[in-house]
């Protein structure tokens, strides 16, 4: 994806990236009893990342995530699952909540710490990872020609040896479906 030429948009995008992320964190941490939560916060963060990629180009946005978005999503998945598993070690059913209410914290106010929060953080990471990955893949494939196809071909084709039904169109010699022959 090309970065835009407009300097106004560029500088606004950078500032907005931080503001939207701050708002996303706010949504994440109030999500226990108020409107908000991991999913919405994740969507907000991914919107911020997409905005940044419009302003500064796709590479900048990928750099700011520091790793493959799918890895972020997987770690989030693991955190969410484990926060459900944790009570099982105490003989309680899966997903039982352990919650601790911290009163009167500075700036934040009343605040809940416990498995719901870690579950929400996991969901947040999953959503950020998946949405940004979807956007990155589609954006890359529109900027570089046939990137999706190259990914598919470089990797792993099916071991289907013959076409499902005979078709004169299909040129069987040019399809590299025998990686091990």
């Amino acid at each position: 994806m090309q970065s835009t030429d407009s300097p106004i948009f560029k500088s606004v995008a950078v500032v907005m990236f931080f503001i939207v992320n701050l708002f996303a964190l706010y949504l994440l941490f109030r999500g226990h009893n108020m409107p908000g939560g991991g999913f919405i916060a994740g969507v907000a963060t991914s919107v911020a990342v997409i905005l940044l990629s419009f302003g500064m180009g796709l590479e900048a946005a990928q750099k700011i995530l520091r790793s493959d978005p799918i890895r972020i999503a997987t770690w989030g998945f693991l955190i969410a699952t484990l926060s459900g598993v944790l009570p099982m070690f105490f003989g309680l059913p899966y997903l039982t909540t352990f919650n601790y209410k911290a009163y009167e914290l500075p700036v934040i106010g009343d605040f809940y710490i416990g498995t719901p929060l870690s579950f929400d953080i996991g969901v947040y990471m999953v959503v950020v990872g998946v949405i940004t990955k979807v956007i990155f893949v589609i954006a890359e494939s529109t900027s570089q020609e046939h990137r999706l196809v190259r990914i598919a071909e470089s990797g792993y084709c099916a071991r289907s040896e013959e076409p499902i039904e005979e078709d004169p169109l299909r040129k069987s010699e040019e399809v590299p479906i025998h990686p091990d022959k």
């Binding site: 998946v130 979807v134 893949v137 589609i138 494939s141 046939h146 999706l148 196809v149 598919a152």
Partner: peptide, 17 residues
């Protein structure tokens, strides 16, 4: 949302092919 994203990617790949 997930299904729509999948469908769009599938559609795009088919279109390229």
């Amino acid at each position: 949302f997930g299904v729509a994203a999948y469908f769009i990617a599938l559609l795009y790949r088919t279109f390229l092919d």
